[in-house]
Design a protein around this nucleic acid. Structure first.
Lengths: 337, 337
DNA sequence: TAATTCTATGCAAAGGTTTGCACTGCTGAC
DNA sequence: GTCAGCAGTGCAAACCTTTGCATAGAATTA
C-alpha cells in the first residue's frame, strides 16, 4: 500500500526528534510519560511497524538461526525441527531450514549462504556424503556458533548432540538373545555410513558378549535402507541361510519390507521369526504384528541442541557433547523374553 | 573473529571510493578492467562478504518468503515444503517456516511476525480453527502477496491452490460401488472441517448418484482422524450395523486403525470388507493388505503455489485459482472391480 | 582550436533505527 | 544567590551498501 510509517514520520508529526520517538517506543526511562503517551498513540494510529532490517543492520544481528538437514520429509528430522522451533521461537528467533538431500556440495553451498545472510547460529546434521568440515569451519570463523546433531562430522570441534545408536542396537539384539532366539540375523544398512556401522557393531558385540560369534551367513549388507531394500534383503537372507528365528533390521522401513515378504512366504511373526526395527516410525505400531523397535528421543534432541546453540550465541562456552539414550519398545513382532 | 571486511575497507586500502568498489564488485560497465581486477583480488584476499542486511535495507527487500502451515511433522506438509523450497531457492529466496499447531491465535501471531520481518511473500495453509482473515488482509495491506494452499480461508481474496478433495473421495466410493460392494460405510472425520465435510459429501453423492441413499447406520462421525480414532470408530460401526462389506475411511491413519481392529476380529480384507483410505501416506503400501487410497499431488502443490507466489511478487497479476487432481491408487485392501 | 563525447571515478544521499554525548531549563541544597 | 544535579530532549554518528548526478581528464570531431 502506502509506504509504511517510520519513526521519522512520527517525529515530524509530533514535532519532536526521531531519537525521542525511538526512546519513547522502547520505554526509555528518561522520556516523559506525556511524550510516551503521544508517541504510542500516534504509532498505533499510523500502524507503525519497526523496520527490523534497519535495526538488524545497526545491531549487527539477524534474529535468524539456520538449520541444515539432509531431508525434511522424514518423521525424524521434522520432529527435530519441531523441537528446535519450540525453543528458538520462544526467545524471538526465526528459523531458516535447508535440505541437502544428502549432497555434500549442496551442504557446502547452503552453509555458505547461511553465513552470508549472517544467521546467528547454525544447527547442522551433516549429509551421509560429507567428507570434510572446511565449510563448517568457515562459518565459525565468521563468528557463527555451530552445533552438530544426530550425525557427526569427525574432526570438527563443536558442541554435539547425538543419540547413543550403539546402545539402542545392543538393547535390541540383547533382547532377542534373552528371549531365546538362536539364529539371529541382521539386515545391515550401508556400513560406510557411521550410524549403520554402529548398529552393525552392536549386533556383533551383543552376540560375542554372549559367547556367540557373528555368523556371516546371518548377515545381509543392504545397499539402501528403504522398505524396498528390506524386501530384497530378506529374500537374499532366506536364500543364503535357513532356520533363522530372528532378524534385527537396521531400521523400521527395512523391517516393514522384511515382514511383508515373510508374511507372504507363510512365516508367522513372532512365532517363527522375531523382527526388530529401529527408529519407531509413527505407523510402526499399526502394522500387524506391531513392530518392536528402538525409540529415539527425537524431539528432545531438537530441544537440547537448540538450547546449547542459544547458550553459545549468548556467551562463549566450552563445547558440550551430549548423548541421549534410546529405548527399546517391545510390541508384537518379537517373542517375549 | 575479526570484524568482517566491508566495501569501505577495500576502498581505503586501494585508495578509491566505496562506490567504485561497489560498482567493481557488481561488474558495472563504467569501471576499468584494471580497477575491477584489483578490487576483486583484494576482496578475495580479505574474504569480503557483502552485508545483505545493508543491501536489503536499501533495496527494501528481505529475500525471504514465509510459509505458515499447521504442522511440519506430516508427510503431507513436509512434502509441500520440499516443493516450495525447490522453486523458491532456485531464484535465490530463503524460506522461513512456522507451525501453527492448528491454533488460530498462533496463526495470527505468526502472520504478524512474518509481516514485521518483511517477508516478500506468504504461503499459508490456514489452521482448522481459523475463523477470520483479518490477519491475512493485514499482511497484504503491507504489500505482501499471499497464496493459500490446501486449505481455504473463505472470504479472503487471493490466489489459491487446492486439491480436488471431493473428486478424490468420489472416485473412491465410486470404485467401491463398481466393485459390487453393497453396504458401504464411511468413517467421517470432524465435518466442521471443510476437507472432511467434502469427503463426506462425496460419499453421500456418489451413493445417491447410483440411486442409493446414504444410510445413517453406515456412517460414524469420528471426533478425530488419527489411527486411534479409526480404532474406536470401527468398533462403533460394527456395533451399530452388521453386514458391512466396505468402509471408506476419511484418511489413511483411520483406515490403518480400522484394518487393525478388523483383522483382530477375524475379518478378511478385502474378501469380507474392502477398505479405502485417503492421503497415500508413505507406508500405506506396506501394510497387509496394502492399502487402497487416494494419492494427492503434494509436491506439485508446493511447486505450483510457490510459482504463483513468485509471479505475484514480481508483478501485479490477477488472482489464480488452481485445482489439482488426486488419483485413486488401487492396492490390495479393496476387491477388484 | 574549440566544442563535444566518452571513460572512469567520486560525492553524497538514502534506507530506518539506536545511542553516546551535549544541551536546556528547572529544582533543591547550601 | 550560586551551583550541583536532574529530567527531558535533540544532534549526529554509526551500521553498509547502492546509485543518480557531477566532475575530471582524455579522446574525438567539426
Amino acid at each position: 500500500m502506502d509506504k509504511p510509517a517510520t519513526i521519522i514520520d512520527i517525529a515530524k508529526a509530533l514535532n519532536i526528534s526521531p531519537s525521542t520517538v525511538s526512546r519513547a517506543l522502547n520505554d526509555h526511562p528518561s522520556i516523559s510519560a506525556q511524550t510516551k503517551k503521544e508517541v504510542h498513540e500516534l504509532a498505533e494510529k499510523l500502524n507503525y511497524q519497526p523496520n527490523l532490517t534497519a535495526r538488524n543492520l545497526l545491531k549487527k544481528r539477524s534474529g535468524v538461526i539456520g538449520v541444515i538437514i539432509p531431508e525434511i520429509t522424514s518423521y525424524f528430522f521434522s520432529m527435530v525441527i519441531t523441537g528446535i522451533q519450540d525453543i528458538v521461537s520462544s526467545v524471538g528467533y526465526k528459523v531458516i531450514i535447508s535440505q541437502t538431500n544428502e549432497s555434500f556440495e549442496e551442504e557446502k553451498k547452503l552453509t555458505h549462504e547461511m553465513a552470508l545472510m549472517r544467521v546467528e547460529g547454525l544447527l547442522v546434521s551433516p549429509s551421509f556424503n560429507t567428507t570434510g568440515f572446511e565449510h563448517l569451519e568457515e562459518a565459525r570463523k565468521s563468528g557463527i556458533p555451530v552445533v552438530l546433531f544426530d550425525r557427526d562430522c569427525p574432526g570438527f570441534e563443536s558442541s554435539k548432540v547425538f543419540v547413543d545408536v550403539y546402545d539402542g542396537a545392543y538393547q535390541a539384539v540383547k533382547y532377542l538373545i534373552d528371549s531365546g532366539c538362536q539364529k539371529i540375523a541382521h539386515i545391515a544398512g550401508p556400513v560406510s555410513i557411521p550410524t549403520f556401522q554402529e548398529r552393525f557393531n552392536a549386533y556383533c558385540n551383543a552376540l560375542s558378549d554372549q559367547g556367540r560369534a557373528a555368523d556371516p551367513a546371518l548377515i545381509v549388507y543392504s545397499p539402501g535402507f528403504s522398505a524396498e531394500d528390506g524386501v530384497s534383503a530378506v529374500h537374499k537372507l532366506l536364500e543364503q541361510t535357513s532356520g533363522i528365528d530372528a532378524i534385527f533390521c537396521v531400521n523400521d522401513a527395512v523391517a516393514i519390507g522384511a515382514m511383508h515378504v515373510l508374511r507372504e512366504k507363510g512365516y508367522h511373526i513372532p512365532q517363527d521369526i522375531s523382527i526388530i526395527g529401529y527408529d519407531d516410525e509413527p505407523y510402526s505400531c499399526y502394522f500387524s504384528p506391531a513392530l518392536t523397535t528402538i525409540w529415539q528421543p527425537v524431539y528432545d534432541m531438537g530441544l537440547l541442541s537448540s538450547r546449547i546453540l542459544l547458550e553459545s550465541i549468548n556467551k562463549k562456552a566450552p563445547f558440550r557433547h551430549e548423548v541421549l539414550k534410546p529405548e527399546l519398545v517391545i510390541r508384537e513382532s518379537s517373542k517375549g523374553a
